[in-house]
Design a binder for these strands. Structure first.
Length: 927
RNA sequence: GGGUGUUUAGCUCAGCUGGGAGAGCGACGGCCUUACAAGCCGUAGGUCGCAGGUUCGAUCCCUGCAACACCCACCA
């Protein structure tokens, strides 16, 4: 390490990572107990965002901690083929070159995707490296690599053989933009303003409504679907329509005869109380249709245009165009009673944004209830635990009402469904076409056609924990590392991924995929707003690590915009918020920030002010190390005479180690980071280093004392670096290599050093009391100085009074320290009865700390200061006294609590008395 | 419609089994004190969302309400 200048992350991070990776430091080693985390595989299309950086920081901290504890730690890494997302990206790129997927053809298109994957797929891996993530690259997997695909096919075939996968014609969510089915989870329900049309359907056969009308009125938000109506429904108990049940209406525009049926599904309070039933285009209507044996009339094509089952006038029209046309035609015919504005939830595809249609198609489904049941039990029984706990309720609520899962997608990129059709439409499922043939006894020359569809990407991700470890082979890695220890992921994919992993893994391995699920929040911008391209408030983690100037940042945020009109506003805001761009804070500072902000699964507002503070913290570590090394000596053997401060900092180090261990165990990364920050800055640097300076700089100090200080400095820093390493790996490695040889540690890497154990640093109450006393006195003097605006250059004289028996001895021990820490020229005790000269007073514990005023300050200011101080203390005292006068408190509160209040009351009273006497004497003097 | 979470200093958030309201950043005042101005010393600032209740005692437990956020759901 270079010992001049400030901490410069750029100078250390890249080369260290390369060195670790080349030395194979990330692979599991030794013979400790295994520990495993499976990475949530990023999509190959992804660029690293702050969410990844956050998640990886937490996982890396866990892995590094366990590795230091001697566990055989494996962080299994890899990427996901991200079926739809990837296909869309590549399609869009090809379209930009004027090539459509259709003209390319399936095989050529898939080849293009692979090509693209190979050329850019490692971007994300490089970015992960930049974060310091200690994943085992030698085991990197891809969900479409050969071995993993084998697992996918195996699972499909076995589920099919068990009857848990079936093919069926059902209403599914159809994305007309992508022309594929999608699962329930991939549909986002968005609230939008629409209209509710009240349409008259003429009654047939001379029937009349109760109030004599010759038509009934149905209410709908989607008039175009009337072309597929096959009934009209009312509630069975609705008296208005009792006589009409069993009668019929004529469907306007189409002329079809629709029966009027009675069904509980209808809400008599809503709309007109009459519902048109369209079994082919609405999930509810479909259920009603099934109950009443209604025909299904499908009026939409794959692109959601009106098809040939509709009257010629509307064929070929887009559904929204058809809606307008039909509304016009009905109005012209006098069949529209009225149109109301109406707020409704519109289903949209999460990838395309298109309005999704319930559409009747042949699809593959997983019969999920039998898989869900053990997955529910696993969480109920605590075999899988969610952290924080409340996410278990989210999980239960979803999985207990789970519906069959549509797993087929009408797309090209992905795992192709291992099913083949013979000339008669018979279905044959097998691991290979040959297996499918041989199982069914089909001749080699008989034509078989493989199903065109691919699997939902989450079908394969569900197998991630065991598929990456070699399943269906029974590999040593699978034996050793499965189940994994913890899954670290966001709440947004509990259903998509976490639940499905639990189901599939239990089914195929008989084990849970992980014992714990740590759910973290989402990273938002400094104001708590979700980051998005369109808002232009996104931050790239690499820009924070490496820095970026304002122009480049603006360019980045305004490039390839879907709403170019926003560009000017985004530019203005960006330049206002980042007039100088973003400084290169380095990976360690970013990681420390994430840990410090990771509390209890809450979303976090990412503010660069925070990272600046933690970059400064890294610099503090850097400088503390510089200081420590300045004083380090080779072969510093010999007698030592540790001071109270030496013993104190060791005692505090023990508390830090205990706090670190407890916090990591509870996944409280914020408390862990906070404890390190507090110890390193406010105990080690602010106090210990300052206390130790006199003995280190004093040539005449006893060698045994100086040596004790030098060694404690080194040993404490060395242990601190180990405790901090899981969060800030680069700087700690760099500093540790410089420090360790002096602390008797030889060579190697901090990655493989043991994490400090609390019991190696026992508590030392006596040393703690001594240093507390010192801190109290120094604090009192500094306070007087600050309040009285004394220049730090002027030395002051200090008088002490009271404070009990040990005070005298403590003064003897610490006088040189006091002189230095508080710039004191002389310090002495006053007898109990001795009246002080005019002074400024503070109370430290039971002792008065006084600085004579003469010529330094004015008495009026001191009186004002004392009044404030007295008021503050008196307020506390009044509250304590109130408690102590309360018989209920004395009778009911536990004895230790009462004793504590008494003690506190006495101390406060003493302090108030002392200050009041002081106030009085100042009054007499009059300044 | 159901559910969950949040509401604490100007901002972002801690506050673990009820018993003296904290941190970081920001603000204000003073300092280039030989590890560090990315620093040091000090100060100010809070009816702990509102209203009840339980308790000797409530930021913490219970009930209700409000605001915000998110999740789920088939009201055409």
């Amino acid at each position: 390490m270079k010992t001049d200048g400030a901490f410069d992350p750029q100078a250390i991070e890249r080369s260290l990572y390369r060195e670790w990776e080349e030395a194979g430091q990330f692979a599991p080693r030794g013979n400790g107990a295994p520990y495993c985390i499976a990475i949530p595989p990023p999509n190959v299309t992804d660029r690293l965002h702050l969410g990844h950086a956050f998640q990886h920081t937490l996982m890396d901290a866990l892995i590094r901690y366990q590795r230091m504890n001697g566990r055989r730690a494996l962080w299994q890494t890899g990427t996901d083929h991200a079926q739809i997302a990837t296909q869309m990206v590549v399609e869009r790129r090809l379209l930009a070159e004027g090539i459509s997927r259709q003209e390319l053809g399936r095989d050529a298109f898939v080849a293009k995707v692979w090509e693209w994957k190979h050329s850019t797929g490692s971007n994300i891996s490089q970015q992960i490296r930049r974060l310091g993530s200690s994943v085992d690259w030698s085991r990197e997997r891809f969900t479409m690599d050969e071995g993993f695909s084998k697992a996918v096919i195996e699972v499909f075939v076995r589920l099919y053989e068990e009857g848990l996968i079936y093919r069926g014609q059902r209403l599914v969510n159809w994305d007309p933009a992508l022309k594929t089915s999608i699962s329930d989870l991939e549909v986002e329900n968005v609230e939008e303003e629409g209209q509710l049309w009240h349409i008259r359907y003429p009654l047939l056969g001379g029937a009349r409504t109760a109030d004599g009308k010759d038509h009934i009125v149905v209410a709908t938000t989607r008039p175009e679907t009337m072309l597929g109506d096959t009934a009209v429904a009312v509630h069975p108990d609705d008296e208005r329509f009792q006589t009409l049940v069993g009668e019929a209406v004529e469907l306007p525009l189409v002329g079809r005869r629709l029966p009027i049926i009675a069904d509980d599904y209808v809400d008599p309070e809503f709309g007109s109380g009459c519902v048109k039933i369209t079994p082919a285009h609405d999930f509810n209507d479909n259920a009603v249709g099934a109950r009443h044996d209604l025909a299904l009339v499908n009026i939409l094509g794959a692109d959601a245009s009106i098809n040939a089952n509709a009257p010629p006038a509307y064929r070929g029209l887009d559904r929204f165009e058809a809606r307008q046309r039909i509304a016009q035609d009905l109005t012209a015919m006098g069949l529209v009673e009225r149109v109301d504005p109406h707020t409704m939830t519109v289903p949209r595809g999460d990838r395309s944004g298109a309005v999704v249609e319930p559409w009747l198609t042949d699809q593959w489904f997983v019969k999920i209830a039998p898989l869900a049941e053990p997955a529910i039990r696993a969480v109920e029984d605590g075999d899988v635990e969610f952290v924080p706990r409340q996410y278990e309720n989210v999980y239960f609520a979803w999985i207990r009402g789970i519906q069959d899962w549509c797993i087929s997608r009408q797309q090209w990129w992905g795992h192709r469904i291992p099913a083949w059709y013979d000339a008669d439409g018979g279905i044959h499922v097998g691991r290979t076409e040959a297996e499918a043939r041989s199982k069914a006894g089909i001749e080699a020359d008989a034509p078989l056609r493989q199903d065109d569809d691919v699997l939902d990407t989450w079908f394969s991700s569900a197998l991630w924990t065991f598929g990456t470890l070699g399943w269906p082979e029974r590999t040593p890695a699978l034996d050793e590392f499965h189940p994994t220890d913890v899954l670290v992921t966001g709440y947004d994919i509990i259903f998509f991924w976490v639940a499905r992993m639990i189901m599939m893994t239990l089914k195929f391995t008989g084990e849970v995929p992980f014992r714990k699920v740590y759910i973290h929040g989402m990273v938002r911008d400094a104001h708590g707003i979700k980051m998005s391209k369109t808002k232009g408030n996104g931050l790239d983690p690499l820009d924070i690590v490496q820095g970026i100037d304002a122009d480049a940042l603006v360019a980045k945020r305004t490039a390839n915009m879907t709403q170019p009109q926003m560009a000017a506003e985004i530019e203005a805001r960006t330049r206002r918020e980042y007039p100088d761009g973003i400084a290169a804070y380095g990976t360690d500072a970013l990681r420390f920030t994430f840990c410090a902000m990771a509390s209890r699964g809450r979303d976090l507002a990412f503010d660069l002010k925070r990272i600046e503070g933690y970059r400064n913290f890294c610099n503090k570590l850097w400088n503390a190390t510089k200081f420590t090394l300045m004083h380090a000596r080779r072969d510093d053997a010999g007698a030592t005479e540790p001071s109270a401060a030496d013993r104190w900092i060791r005692s505090r180090l023990g508390l830090l180690a205990a706090e670190a261990e407890r916090s990591i165990g509870n996944y409280r990364f914020d408390l862990y980071a906070g404890a390190i920050y507090e110890f390193a800055w406010h105990e080690f640097c602010d106090w210990y280093v300052e206390i130790v300076k006199p003995v280190l700089f004093d040539e005449t100090a006893p060698e045994a004392q100086a040596r004790a200080a030098r060694q404690t400095l080194l040993a404490t820093l060395e242990a601190l670096l180990r405790i901090a390493h899981p969060i800030v790996p680069f700087i700690t490695e760099t500093l540790w290599r410089a420090v360790a040889p002096h602390a008797g540690e030889q060579g190697g890497t901090i990655m493989r050093q043991p994490f400090p154990r609390p019991d190696a640093y026992p508590q030392d109450p006596e040393a703690e009391a001594a240093v507390d006393w010192l801190k109290g006195v120094v604090g009192a003097i500094r306070n007087i100085r600050g309040e009285m605006r004394l220049s730090p250059a002027t030395e002051v004289e200090v008088l002490l009074q009271g404070g009990g028996d040990e005070a005298g001895a403590r003064l003897v021990d610490t006088e040189p320290l006091l002189r230095r820490l508080a710039k004191v020229s002389a310090i002495r005790f006053l007898g109990a009865a001795e009246a002080p000269p005019p002074v400024s007073t503070q109370v430290a514990g039971e002792m008065k700390v006084m600085v004579p005023l003469a010529g330094l300050i004015d008495a009026a200011a001191e009186r004002a200061r004392l009044d404030r101080e007295i008021a503050k203390l008196a307020k506390d005292l009044a509250r304590v006294d109130g408690k102590l006068r309360n018989p209920g408190f004395l009778a009911n509160a536990p004895a230790p609590v009462v004793a504590k209040q008494r003690e506190r009351g006495a101390a406060l009273r003493q302090q108030v008395d002392a200050l009041e006497r002081q106030r009085q004497s100042l009054e007499e003097i009059r300044g």
